[in-house]
């Protein structure tokens, strides 16, 4: 993302200012929800605890602190000039770099939430490593490698990782695998 959000000399990039504005709104919603949750949290009155020691005290104070910081961030973002910020931010989110990060996330989620638990761990690991290397060396690389160049390495590393991780963790260090 930041490939596009380069900082100009003497201040924040317009895209970063807009991104700060968006995150400040997220933090305001988060802090308001937590403040509400803290306020309505059980005060354990039936156990006659001191009202100053209720479980919601610290979360409430923290959400107030986050609210103040988020408002300061929002005010700063609104006040700072950022011509073309939304366009730059849009370009950053749809850039090649963001696509690569998105693909890592996709592969990781498929491996973690889909394959692990569904098939044996060694097989899931082998498939993940093979797919990861091929995607980032043959498809989303610059310059790209040919399938013939990458495939032997990808298969070798997939088999080696699956075997070594399983052996080292399960046999040598007696750690259970997912």
């Amino acid at each position: 993302m930041t490939d596009q959000i380069e900082e100009p000399a003497g201040g924040e990039a317009p895209a970063m200012i807009k991104a700060d504005l968006l995150t400040s709104l997220v933090f305001i919603v988060l802090s308001a929800s937590m403040l509400y949750g803290s306020w309505t949290m059980d005060r354990l009155a039936n156990r006659r605890i001191n009202p100053m020691t209720v479980p919601g005290l610290v979360p409430g104070l923290l959400s107030l602190a986050l609210l103040i910081c988020a408002i300061a961030l929002m005010v700063r973002s609104v006040r700072t000039p950022s011509v073309g910020g939304w366009l730059d931010l849009g370009a950053a989110v749809t850039s090649q770099a963001a696509r690569r990060a998105g693909m890592v996330l996709f592969l990781a989620l498929v491996y973690t939430l889909g394959l692990v638990g569904l098939v044996p761990f060694w097989l899931a690991t082998g498939i993940f490593v093979l797919a990861f290397i091929l995607v980032f060396e043959v498809w989303l690389a610059a310059p790209r490698r040919t399938l013939r160049q990458s495939l032997p390495w990808a298969i070798g590393l997939a088999v080696a990782t699956a075997a070594i991780v399983t052996f080292v963790f399960e046999r040598a260090f007696l750690v259970r695998l997912p």
Partner: peptide, 25 residues
């Protein structure tokens, strides 16, 4: 690219192994 694929596998194993809960992953 080759290194990071292996590192992610270690991330999965590393977060699971201590309490052995999928939740930690």
């Amino acid at each position: 690219e080759r290194l990071m694929a292996v590192v992610y596998v270690l991330c999965v194993v590393g977060s699971f192994a201590i309490t052995q809960r999928m939740f930690d992953i």
